[in-house]
Every structure is written in C-alpha cells, then in structure tokens.
Nucleic acid binder design. Structure first.
Length: 728
DNA sequence: AATATTCCCGTTTTT
DNA sequence: CGGGAATATT
C-alpha cells in the first residue's frame, strides 16, 4: 500500500478512534470489523469505501453489499458526500444478483425479462403447485411450504436434493410441491427472491470464467451486517473475493436476529477460521447511549455463549436509571406509556425522539389505541407495503405480462381485472386448450380458431387480446408514460375511481403515487426500461417509509428497530413467553432460540440514547384471552442497581370526551382553517399553520407559543377551537 | 359480480 | 379479539 501523508485524505481520517482508523485504512486481505451498537460502524464503512476508492484503487473496483435498500441508499449518499467521484457499486444482495442475472441471463439459463415474484406471487404459485400435486391446502399450507422451500433454497438446496433428503411423509409431500413449484417458475420465466441469490451463487460457482471477470471487476468487496448472511450469501461473498481475498465484513454477532430466516450466525463467528490471516478490528466504544443503558445491555448479552466477547464502553454520561414499570394489564400499560410520553412532551421532548418497541405486531393495537385516546400522533414503521397493494399489483401485472408473456400468474390476475366477462369457465377452457396443445394461455388467446369456439365469451376473450395488443407498444415508452397510458386504457383507473367511494384506502391516489414513483425513478435512472422499473418495484418496497422526520412517536417491532436509534425508548411486554417469545404447545419448542431472543432484547435496549423504560403487564390479553403473566427471565439478568422499579400506580383510565372516542371531527370543523387558534389541555394555546383534509383523516399542524410545532390527527386530537377574542 | 357469512388462525419478515 | 380468506347467498 502506498504511504501517503495523512493529510492527503484528512477528511476521511478525521474524528476517529484508533480501531476505526485501522478499519478504514486496512487495504489488502480479509478484514473482520466487529462493531458494537452505536460504535460508528456506518461512518467507518462509508469512509473505508471512500478511502479505498480514492487511494488504494479506483471507485469502480469497490463493491459494497448491504441487506436493505435503506442501508444501500444511506451508504451511497454518505460516500458521495465524501467527494469520491461516483462509481462505487453499492447494492443489496438481491439487487446485485438481479442485475447480474439480467446481464448474464444466457449463462444463467433464463430469459432476459424474467419476472421477480414477491411473497404474494410466490404463495399463489405454491398454492397452485399444491393443487396440481393433488394435495389439499388443508394439510399443507402454502405458508409453511413457502417457509420450508425458502429455508432450503437459502441453504443452497434445490428441489431434487430436498427430495432425496426427505425422510418423513410430510417432507416428501413438500418435496413434490417444491418440484412442481420450480417447474411453475420456469414456465412463467420467473424467479423468487431466494432464486436471485441462489441462481447467481450457483452460476458464479460453476462458471470460472465469469467468476474471474467479477473478481477482476470488484477487487474490494465489503459486506455489511455479515451476521445476517445465509448460506447462499456467505458462499457468494466468498466467491466474489476468491481471486483477491479482499473481503471486508462488518457486523455484530450479538445483533444476529434473523436465524429463523436462514441467517447463520456462524458465518461471522467463524470468519477467522475461514480466513486465518484475517485482520480483526473491534469497535467497542459506544457513542450512542448512557453508561447505564450500555451496562445493562452488556450485562444481558454476557449470558449468551454463542458470541465473541466485546468490551462495550462509553465516555457518555451515566444518565438516568433504566425504569421498569409494572402495570395491571395491557390497557394500563399502554396508557401509562402514553401519559408518560405526554409528560415528556410538555417538558419539551420532541415526539420524533420517542419510540415504542414490542416483540409481536399484535401488541401494537393496544398501544395505538392509547395514542388515539390521547390525541398524540404516532406512526407504525411497518406500513402496508405500497407495492403489495391490490391496485398497485394490478398495474404491475399488466406491465409484467407485456414484458414477459410467459408470466401466466400475472396474466390470470389481469384477465378479468377490471371485470370484462371472462369468468372461471372460460379461463378453465383456455387453460385446458393451452395444456392440450402445449402452449401458454396468452398464445391461445390470440388463436382465432380456439376463440371462435367459445361462443359469447369468445368475444370478450378477443377483446382482451386486442387490449393487450393495443397496450404492448407502450412498453417502449418511459416507465411513467407507460404506466399512465396503461392505467387509463386498461380501465383500471375507471374501475378504482368507481370503487373509491369513501373506502378506507384511496386506490386512485395510490395509482397516481405509483406514476410519481416511476417518474422519480426515471430521473435517477435515465433511460431506464420497463423491466428495470419492474425490478426496482420488486426489490425496493419502501417508497412510503422514505418520508423523512415526522413529528410523531414511532411504534415498531424489535426486529424493525435494528439499525435505528432514539433518545427515548420504551419496550413493552417484558413477560415470560413474550419477550423470550415462545410458541405455545409447539412440538418440543422447535425453532425456539433463547440466545436469539436475548440478542433481540439487546438490540432493543441499545437503540436508546438517553432514557430506557421497560414495561410489563400482570394480565395480558392476547388473541382474545387474558392470561396472568410472569416476569421475563431476562429481567433477572439485568444489574439490579441500574434499575428503577416503578410500582403500578393506578392510573384511572380517563373518561374522554366522546368525540375523540368515536374518532370524529369537531362539530364546528367548518370554522377550522389555517390561522385558527386552538387549545390543547397540556400544551395550551396554539395556532393552526396547516390543515390537510384527506379522504380519511384530517391532519393539522399547530404551532404553540413556545415555538414548538406538533402534528395531530384532528379526529383524535384533544384540541378545541378558541375564539380569537379569548386570547389575550 | 357484488355482498353477506362463516370460519380459521394467530412470531419476528432486510429482499 | 379481529382480519382475511374461503364460502354462501342474492
């Protein structure tokens, strides 16, 4: 490595501790960065990428692989901000594989325009496979088969191999479905998410020439969140760095929480065995949390055996005690939290600084209700995925059929959407004919001799075929133009406009948002094709979670919290069976991993910067049954002196004004507008600075005397209008 | 095809 | 308890 004076890249090496600096400047050979929570990993990773690109090699030889799009976007931006020209490849595993498979589709043995099936598509295909195997979905649920196929694929086990190892009856049934499912995917020219990884990995493994080319192209490979890699990703990472061994992996074994999904913590634990000459850097100084919070997390995680020791420490202040609050039941637990938050807000805390975590989504509802009652705005991190919405999938199905006529799953989705009189019997006939003559249904559609034999429904079928013909030239337009045309010409817009009479979703708005999303995509990817856009839509599911800092509390599962941080954190439901989550009446606790549960709790704790509150309810209602709970055993593992126990003060559930209970707008809402003065019981007098009357909810932004600004859902906000004269 | 009814099921879910 | 899907009804 050329030794240059440090100031040549001073901005990259400023403000670092020694291990961070080592991690950034290590050039050749394997490198393992063990990064504790809040240890500045992202900074190290981005600067390392920039350092390599500017001093050791050039940007186009640097490849950074992440797990989430969010991480990829963030890394791309932060590297760009360091002024190291563009050219670094930053991608998720899946996006990278999709891109490479598209380029090398011939070697991979697939068509160029292959579709990417998401979970819903996959389940549908599996269901079809189950039926075609003459089995009933009763004994074999698509979901469980999905899970098993997924685990198998992620372990690089194909259908044939799975069949060989199938020992019991059930496994043999799954094996049959697996094989049938694979045949379906092939017939549809489609890949599922797992295929993207496994097909690419197997391709690189068997194709030495391609492997050599990739090794030469990507001379420095960086894999983030390495503790979450599964067998396919592990193998791919190794193959991609086989020629040069410049593989840098970062992660934290203590934050491995996706074992149930096929991630193998041993990949990171055994890195030094795989690469005996690996340089190991530990980032142990925490810049995020108070001493108390960090000590708690550290004490807890020491109970795990499967780990690499890290000495977590911080120079931050000691901070407040971690609070443990015990409440009578889940309702009171929720309202206690919301009351506590309200107090903090009055004391000046920002809502966006606060988060509530829970182990299972089912717990979110009680908490939400409490927020509703109090009129405090909140958001749930896991929104219904935009691209999973019915109307969006309908549109995408048209695009898919047009770009990949093999995709019969999508064809079946649109053949009678909007309703055009092609019913089940007609579809069955078309399918039968297709099977008899060994064609795809779409080809049968355009066969005059077949269609004319269908009588009245033949007309409809012909009309549909004509529609597809009419739409197909639009494929050459830009994605947003194509979408616009197809949405209106297919009749989808008209259909959803009619459906949109005050329902709780706004499908037409979503269609427009889809067009906007496509337009935005075009801007960042000039010259992108429909297929590019479809790929983007399949792999980037977080359009709506990109919205920036909203002034509200964030609710999410512990899993979703990974990688985030908040000054104030609440974790609910510290109960045995819930925080170490245990499935009841399960076959001998299969799939239960206490260490992983502990890591999950560790992740939750270490999200908190300043204040952490753990709560627990004596009685919890779950699935309509109220049960007496017991303490989470994890609580016993925490250092008692760092904890502050708060007795269950009995907060009388306040009897609220009925308008808010019913979620209604104030009766004098007509007189509410921007400029109206309002009163909040805690925050006093404020003025409306914006008011957004959506179809479902009305949002108001209020600025108070002290200059603070809050957003509320008016239906649930404890706001009353005050006459201007009342204010002095 | 649209609506009413029953019934079934119920961790976590980066892509 | 509550949502979604499968099924029944008009």
């Amino acid at each position: 490595m050329p030794t240059l004076p440090d100031d040549a890249f001073a901005p990259l090496l400023v403000d670092l501790n020694e291990p961070q600096r080592q991690a950034i400047t290590h050039a050749d050979g394997p490198l393992l960065i063990l990064a504790g929570p809040g240890s500045g990993k992202t900074r190290v990773v981005t600067r390392r990428a920039a350092y390599l690109a500017s001093t050791v090699t050039s940007a186009r030889h640097v490849l950074a692989i992440t797990f989430t799009n969010k991480a990829a976007v963030e890394m791309r931006q932060r590297v760009a901000a360091l002024d190291v020209g563009p050219g670094i490849t930053v991608a998720t595993f899946h996006a990278l594989c999709a891109k490479l498979l598209r380029i090398h589709h011939e070697r991979a043995g697939i068509t160029r325009n292959f579709a990417i099936y998401d979970r819903d598509d996959k389940r549908k295909a599996i269901k079809q496979a189950i039926e075609e195997c003459g089995l009933s979905a009763d004994n074999l649920s698509p979901a469980s088969v999905d899970e098993q196929i997924s685990l198998a694929k992620n372990a690089l086990c194909g259908a044939a191999q799975y069949a060989e190892s199938a020992s019991d009856w059930r496994a043999r049934m799954v094996a049959r479905v697996f094989e049938r499912y694979e045949a379906l995917l092939t017939a549809n020219s489609a890949l599922d998410f797992d295929d993207l990884l496994t097909r690419m990995t197997l391709l690189v493994e068997r194709d030495a020439e391609l492997r050599g080319r990739l090794n030469d192209q990507y001379r420095y490979v960086l894999v983030d969140e390495y503790q979450d890699t599964n067998a396919a990703q592990y193998r791919l990472a190794r193959l991609l760095s086989e020629g040069h061994r410049n593989l840098c992996v970062t992660g934290d074994p203590d934050q491995s929480i996706y074992g149930w999904r096929g991630a193998d913590i041993r990949n990171i634990l055994d890195f030094e065995r795989d690469f005996p000459d690996a340089k190991v850097v530990r980032l142990e100084q925490n810049y995020r949390s108070t001493k108390q919070i960090l000590a708690l997390a550290d004490k807890l995680i020491q109970n795990n055996l499967q780990r690499k020791h890290k000495a977590l420490w911080t120079e931050n202040t000691s901070g407040e005690n971690v609070r443990i609050v015990e409440l009578d039941d889940s309702d009171r637990e929720a309202s206690w939290i919301v009351d506590d938050i309200a107090k903090k807000v009055t004391a000046g805390a920002k809502l966006s600084d606060i988060a509530v975590f829970y182990r299972v989504n089912a717990l979110s509802r009680v908490v939400e209700e409490a927020f509703f009652q109090k009129g405090l705005p909140y958001q749930i991190a896991r929104g219904v995925e935009f691209y999973a919405r019915k109307e969006v999938k309908d549109v995408l199905a048209y695009l898919r059929v047009l770009s990949n006529p093999d995709d019969e799953l999508s064809l079946m989705r649109i053949i009678n959407t909007p309703p055009r009189g092609i019913g089940d019997t007609t579809i069955e006939r078309l399918k039968a004919e297709a099977q008899r003559t060994d064609r795809r249904v779409i080809n049968v559609l355009s066969d005059k001799s077949v269609v004319s034999g269908l009588g009245r429904s033949g007309m409809k079928t012909r009309a549909f075929d004509a529609l597809l013909m009419e739409l197909s030239p639009h494929l050459n337009l830009s994605p947003s133009r194509a979408l616009t045309e197809i949405i209106s010409r297919s009749g989808l817009r008209a259909m959803y406009a009619q459906e949109d009479r005050g329902g709780d979703s706004a499908p037409v708005e979503n269609l427009d948002e889809l067009i906007n999303a496509a337009a935005a995509f075009e801007e960042s990817h000039p010259g992108a094709s429909i297929v590019d856009w479809l790929e983007h839509a399949a792999l980037v599911s977080d359009v709506d979670s990109v919205e920036g800092e909203k002034d509200c509390v964030t609710l999410m599962t512990l899993h979703a919290a990974k990688g985030l941080e908040f000054p104030i954190v609440y974790i609910v439901g510290l109960e045995n069976g819930l925080l170490p989550f245990r499935r009841m009446q399960d076959d001998a606790g299969a799939g239960y991993d206490e260490e992983e549960e502990r890591r999950l709790f560790f992740v939750g704790i270490t999200r908190a910067r300043r204040q952490l509150t753990l709560t627990r309810a004596n009685y919890r209602m779950l699935r309509g049954i109220t049960t007496r709970t017991t303490f989470s055993p994890f609580l016993d593992e925490l250092p008692p002196n760092a904890l502050q126990w708060i007795e269950s003060e009995r907060v009388a559930t306040p009897v609220r004004s009925s308008r808010i209970d019913r979620g209604e707008l104030p009766s004098d809402v007509d007189q509410w507008s921007v400029g109206t003065m309002v009163r909040h019981p805690l925050l006093g007098i404020g003025q409306i600075v914006s008011m957004d009357r959506g179809s479902r909810r009305t949002f108001v932004d209020v600025v108070f005397k002290d200059g603070s600004r809050k957003t509320w859902v008016l239906e649930f906000a404890d706001l009353t209008r005050v006459e201007f004269e009342d204010v002095d």
